[in-house]
Design a protein around this nucleic acid. Structure first.
Lengths: 121, 121
DNA sequence: TCGTTATTTCGCAAAATTACGAAATAATAT
DNA sequence: ATATTATTTCGTAATTTTGCGAAATAACGA
């Protein structure tokens, strides 16, 4: 009894994409690849971030698993690029998610800013 | 030697916000609070999601730590609301992040869709 | 064939996350 | 003062994440 709560597909998807983006290395990679006409190799990231190849491989695997990137083999290299379809879906989801709060001025929530209210530095 | 790579503030911030949103419970809470005029109490989440109060408290703490929500005490309750300042910053960051890929049609990356290219179900 | 280069997989250890029950705290009502 | 209600903190166990080195794999060139 008292069955488990079922999250909506959107909530599941947002949390999964967010998880994929929850590490600086992975945000770095996506930021790099989401620009114009940009692809990269694993070794590029190794050189740029100065971390072990196996670590980079692990992060790429997670991004691939999340569907955010894709790779094609090029001889001994694997060229990674954004998966535009899923990147677009993620963008849509997040834009909708963050867009839910109206931008207009005025009290949306009748709070007085409390002591535990801290801004991002 | 070979000093550690320094991530940009944006990358750090995005990964931190993403981490805060990397769990369905937390996305659920934020989705609830980011709507019009909506606040909630810890017990609301407990009832709705049917999880232990201590678990909810833990998730709220993380969202508070990330700066996404804030709470004010109301008798034995604590009323939680979105921290609009930081929510706005997060929205800006993510919109910029996802906006970096141009929407126009055509090949941005000269890839042929490979076998490891899977869409979101 | 034998190196070389790029990359992944494996195994492992350290750290972080998740979820829960029990106990503690805090505000209110009886 | 005692009970009630909402919430947090604490301790704990199970799981996941992270990072690395070593070994394995794969493509290419001499």
């Amino acid at each position: 009894m008292s069955e488990k709560f079922q999250y909506s597909n959107d909530i599941i998807r947002i949390s999964k994409f967010a998880k994929a983006l929850s590490h600086p290395v992975r945000v770095y990679i996506i930021k790099k690849l989401s620009g114009m006409n940009t692809c990269c190799y694993s070794c590029d990231i190794v050189k740029e971030l100065k971390i072990a190849p196996s670590t980079v491989s692990q992060h790429l695997k997670e991004l691939k698993y999340a569907g955010l990137i894709q790779g094609i083999t090029e001889g001994p290299f694997i060229k990674y690029c954004i998966n535009r379809v899923n990147w677009g879906k993620a963008g849509y989801l997040f834009r909708e998610f963050f867009g839910e709060l109206p931008v207009e001025e005025g009290d949306i929530c009748d709070i007085k800013l409390a002591e535990n209210n801290k801004d991002i530095e």
